[in-house]
Computed example of a mutant assay.
Amino acid sequence: MSRQRKILFLCTGNSARSQMAEAFVRAYAGEWLEPHSAGLEPKGLNPYTVRVMDEVGIDISGQTSKSVRTYMGQMHFDYLVTVCQHAEENCPTTFLGFGTKLHWGFDDPAAFAGSEADTLAVFRTVRDQIGAQVKTWLAEVKETVA
């Protein structure tokens, strides 16, 4: 049996997008991929992120916001996925220890300002985009990774 592969999702605040991606991988492929997430400037887990993930049956209330420094030099990742343009442009060049680097750009739902209903709608849209991207990517790599 092959070893479990590791994937790190990186964004700016590690409050929404990277947390969602980590949770989707854990839910869909946790038996063959070990997901992690981190931020360049961690801001804490956004409560709307927890709410919209709960709506699709994924409890992330126990996840925490972490700095990319937590992982630098500590763990090898088979995949590093940036989920925002800021992380793509500012990923530490000294961050050795990853195999394949990917970029999946998503809008930042935490940057939206509006009513609670409108904010939830934005978070749901981004959640659904991330969930679809994760499913598509998992289908592409499962044959070579699992």
Rank of each mutant, 00 (worst) to 15 (best):
W32I: 11
G105Q: 12
P42K: 04
A111S: 13
D107V: 09
A110R: 11
H103M: 01
H103A: 14
T100S: 08
F77G: 13
G13D: 02
V56F: 05
K6H: 14
G13L: 00
G131P: 07
A117D: 14
V68H: 03
E88Y: 10
A113F: 10
A38C: 03
S18R: 08
Q133D: 05
M72I: 10
T12V: 14
L40T: 12
E34S: 12
I130Q: 00
E34D: 09
N14I: 03
F95V: 03
D108S: 09
V68K: 02
D107W: 09
S61K: 04
N46Q: 00
L10K: 04
D108C: 05
F95W: 06
W32L: 10
V145D: 11
D107Y: 12
E143A: 14
Q19R: 08
N14K: 06
K66C: 01
S37Y: 10
A87H: 07
M1G: 15
T64Q: 09
P109V: 08
G73H: 00
R51H: 04
K101T: 10
T93G: 08
S67N: 02
M75F: 10
D128V: 07
R17Q: 05
D108N: 12
I58K: 03
P92N: 02
T119H: 02
E116F: 02
L80R: 02
F98T: 09
T125F: 04
Y48G: 09
R51C: 06
R5N: 08
K6V: 11
N46E: 04
L8M: 14
L96V: 03
Q4E: 09
C91A: 15
I7S: 01
P92S: 12
A21K: 10
E31Y: 01
T136A: 15
T136M: 14
S61V: 00
R26L: 10
M20K: 00
T82M: 07
G73L: 00
V122S: 01
L40D: 01
Y71E: 02
M1T: 08
S37L: 05
T70L: 06
P42M: 14
N46W: 03
I7G: 02
A16V: 01
N14A: 03
V141H: 06
E143H: 14
G99W: 09
R124L: 08
V126K: 11
Q85N: 15
F112N: 01
V52C: 10
F24Q: 15
G97H: 10
H36N: 08
S67H: 06
C11S: 11
G99S: 06
D107R: 15
N14V: 04
A38M: 01
N90K: 11
W32V: 13
E41N: 05
R5K: 15
E89W: 04
A38N: 01
L33S: 13
W104L: 11
R127L: 13
D108E: 14
G114C: 13
E31F: 00
L8F: 11
F123C: 03
M20G: 07
T64H: 07
A23H: 00
E116K: 03
T94P: 01
P42H: 05
P109Q: 12
Y48T: 04
N90F: 12
W104A: 05
V50R: 13
P47Y: 10
V122D: 02
R3M: 04
E143C: 02
V81P: 05
D118V: 11
T64C: 03
I58A: 03
A111P: 01
R51D: 15
L10T: 09
Y28A: 15
F9G: 09
S67R: 00
Q85L: 14
G131T: 07
